[in-house]
């Protein structure tokens, strides 16, 4: 069973969200997701300053196996992207919840975080798969 840190929030589409305070969150994909996809070869990220809405396909994780859309788990403005993934997409495999982060968003509405799954809820959602 893969690691599901309890301090993070999750979307059923396998993104994780970490609150950094001041309405800023960091977003990536879960260890379970990277395990399903296999070795990552390209990651296409949104642009800084993009306005994104919950459910938009905003990034693409392309692995040896398939290209997968990554959906915005929250709405807001992209304020940073992980440029290290350009040359080292494998960081998503080796450290999905850390160095493999994808982008940071300034939330439009902080209460949106409450609608996301907690670790227990995400664990249940992948057990149903």
């Amino acid at each position: 069973m893969s690691n599901i840190p309890s301090e993070l929030k999750y979307a059923t589409s396998h993104e994780w969200v970490r609150s950094e305070g001041n309405g800023i969150v960091t977003i990536g994909i879960t260890e379970h997701a990277q395990d399903l996809l296999g070795d990552m070869v390209f990651v296409e990220l949104p642009d800084v300053d993009d306005e994104i809405s919950t459910g938009d396909d905003v990034a693409v994780a392309e692995s040896v196996k398939a290209a997968s859309d990554i959906y915005a788990p929250v709405s807001g403005k992209v304020i940073a992207v992980n440029e290290d993934l350009e040359d080292s997409p494998e960081l998503v495999n080796s450290d999905a919840f850390g160095d493999g982060w994808m982008f940071k968003v300034k939330l439009e509405d902080e209460s949106e975080l409450e609608a996301l799954l907690d670790a227990e809820g995400y664990k249940n959602s992948i057990d149903e798969d």
């Binding site: 296999g38 070795d39 070869v41 040896v64 494998e90 495999n93």
Partner: peptide
């Protein structure tokens, strides 16, 4: 076996 960790 599809891989033993990393196919690459």
């Amino acid at each position: 076996p599809i891989n033993y960790g990393s196919q690459i």
